[in-house]
């Protein structure tokens, strides 16, 4: 009797254990995914605060001007054309700064819609 229950037919106890274990595993996975999705959404939203945006725009704008002026200064030193290359590249740096800010703004606008779309997509995503 004991022997036959061991060999033939699935052991109901073990099967139940396996099932509850895979269920727990899936619950843990799903919980993890929702927590991750919530955290991402929260972070993206926080980045949208006035302070965060202001800092981003300022950094993008100033960085391009500094780089433009720096390259111009370097060219002037090399070619002895002071101050013309610096003037021209400073102006180009301003243009690049405006371009950077416009791109950053476009990215932020895209993030708002993508952020919500991708978080719902993560929830739908079963397994990958």
């Amino acid at each position: 009797m004991a022997n036959s229950s061991h060999s033939d037919g699935p052991d109901p106890e073990r099967e139940a254990r396996d099932r509850s274990r895979s269920l727990a595993e899936r619950i843990a996975g799903a919980r993890r995914e929702t927590m991750v999705a919530e955290a991402s959404a929260e972070f993206r939203q926080r980045e949208m605060t006035g302070m965060g945006r202001a800092f981003r725009f300022a950094a993008e704008f100033v960085a391009a001007i500094i780089v433009g002026a720096g390259i111009g200064y370097g060219i002037d030193l090399l070619l002895g054309t002071r101050p013309w290359a610096m003037i021209v590249l400073l102006l180009l740096g301003f243009a690049a700064g405006v371009l950077n800010v416009m791109r950053a703004a476009a990215e932020m606008n895209a993030d708002v819609s993508v952020g919500t779309a991708s978080s719902s997509q993560v929830l739908d995503d079963d397994d990958d």
Partner: peptide, 13 residues
């Protein structure tokens, strides 16, 4: 040139 400056400014920002 504007695009190049914009690209080079990335590590700075």
């Amino acid at each position: 040139p504007i695009e190049i400056i914009s690209f080079l400014s990335r590590p700075l920002s």
